[in-house]
Amino acid sequence: MEEPILKVENLEVGVKKDTGFMNIVNNISFFLKKGETLGIVGESGCGKSMTSLSIMDLTPASVSLKSGKILLKDKDLTAMRKNERRKVRGKEIAMIFQEPMTSLNPVYTIGYQIVEMIRNHQNMTKKQAYQHALNMLQLVGIPRADEILHEYPHQLSGGMRQRVMIAMVLSCSPEILIADEPTTALDVTIQAQILELMKSLQEEMNMSIILITHDLGVVAEMCDRVVVMYAGEIVEESEVHELFENPKHPYTKGLLESLPDVDEDREYLSSIKGTVPSPSEMPEGCRFAPRCAFASEKCQEDPPVFRVNQKSSCKCWLFEDSTAE
């Protein structure tokens, strides 16, 4: 197997409180290979956004990294100085956000904002940078790109703005794109277009994508591999087909069961009982146990990650008999 481009090792992120350190992300590890799309799935508040913000070093001031490593190829990002870290942002790892409506600065033209990005990382004259920005806009399929360059964000629709964001963050050919719910705020038809666009650009630029979403439909469409997060932990990691055909963790099963099935005629969709525990009231042992239909005595103890087969691993005592990793 080729060496992964990004490796997250035992990452712990949280908030300092008077009572101690409150973990939001608890000891997670995963990796990303060149050219693949990794999905990070989970309910809101499970720590998936905080994980991506930690990789970007964009966490809110109150949130800090407690331990763990983030390895970009062989460089440890967490050991870098702020200034070096800044230069990685946008050039090697770029990010697009959930809200295209508010992601662009309202007082600057589209062109200005793209050119700012380009000139920040590449040695280009203003003229060259504008030409490059124009090319990028055309690449993401924006009509009358030469006019849009001089327009302001409020003159564009949400879908168009997300295209502009994609054009902007890809203008410096990053190796990794983190997309935090990139289509959640868009109409369904536009969603499909944006996903299609990301897919084709990924091939063209041989880029790796971390796609954060709670939408399993998007995962099936886009991802090669999936990491399922629950309450700040990774409970399952699996290849995408394996995940849908043979989910391991009870939580993953619950998620999949809550999807509507066209062949089945049901009045209600099934749902996972209970709610996600808040970070201050985490249950001992397995964090999913209180909501889990398969929970047993053993679940009082925190399960390790078991490698179930070549394609997947799972953090659940049910797979104890598989060879532990």
Binding site: V88, V107, N120
Partner: peptide, 26 residues
Amino acid sequence: NQQYISTAKSKGIKDWVVIIRHAFRN
């Protein structure tokens, strides 16, 4: 706290440029 400030930071531009050019201008 606006999203476009996160965007500006994610572009890797200097902190004071984000503060003056993107935040203060607004």
